[in-house]
């Protein structure tokens, strides 16, 4: 149990998908202009990462490993991820049309969000069991959502700040992202995973 807790903290905070592994930076800069959009994106990505990691684990264990088809890994994983994203898109369109409008192009782009494929490939590398890999994927995506929401909150305040003209907009956002990454380095002592 303690191992699980440590692993989840490690995945969410210490080896954060965005700030430590630098995955999924497109949506990190793209949809973090407002907190509610960022939270919606985080929720959608959490769902996609968790579901596709579960499916990817099954594919890896019962298909790729069992029949020696390891070279098909990227293609099959992308296939699974794309289906999960498509499903999420349909659900969001049905449940919350306004969130669907706000996320816009970034919703189908979860397919190419390297955080999703990155987590799936990390799981293969780690050779974890089903429960452990699902937990790891969920914790990673929670870390992703957390950083998205924190960064959106920062950017909402940045809009009101008196930033020098040349730094206004994306430049100051990148600088703040770097500071946030440095702040997250402080977690590296918590858990050694």
């Amino acid at each position: 149990m303690k191992e699980f807790a440590l692993m989840m903290i490690g995945a969410a905070l210490v080896n954060n998908v965005i700030l430590a592994r630098f995955l999924g930076l497109c949506s990190f800069m793209g949809v973090t202009t407002r907190v509610d959009t960022a939270a919606g994106m985080g929720l959608a990505t959490t769902f996609v990462i968790t579901v596709s990691s579960m499916a990817d684990w099954a594919v890896q264990t019962y298909l790729l490993n069992a029949y020696g088809l390891g070279f098909l890994r990227t293609v099959t994983f992308i296939l699974v991820i794309a289906s999960a994203v498509q499903f999420t898109e349909m659900t969001i369109k049905k449940v919350s049309p306004s969130l669907f409008q706000m996320l816009g192009i970034y919703l189908p782009l979860i397919t190419t969000n390297c955080a999703v494929l990155g987590v799936a490939l990390l799981l293969v590398e780690g050779r974890m069991g089903f429960l452990a890999s699902t937990m790891f994927a969920f914790a990673s995506s929670v870390g992703y959502s957390l950083v998205m929401i924190i960064f959106a909150g920062l950017r909402e305040r940045l809009v009101l700040a008196n930033v020098p003209r040349l730094f206004a907009g994306p430049p100051i956002a990148f600088i703040v992202a770097g500071m946030l990454a440095m702040a997250f380095m402080g977690f590296s002592g918590i858990a050694t995973s």
């Binding site: 594919v59 298909l63 029949y67 088809l69 070279f71 098909l72 293609v75 099959t76 296939l79 699974v80 289906s83 498509q86 499903f87 349909m90």
Partner: peptide, 16 residues
């Protein structure tokens, strides 16, 4: 490999 990809595609496609 062809067969497994085709089966996967068909399954996921029908679920969608």
């Amino acid at each position: 490999s062809v067969g497994s990809l085709a089966v996967m595609g068909l399954t996921l496609g029908s679920v969608l």
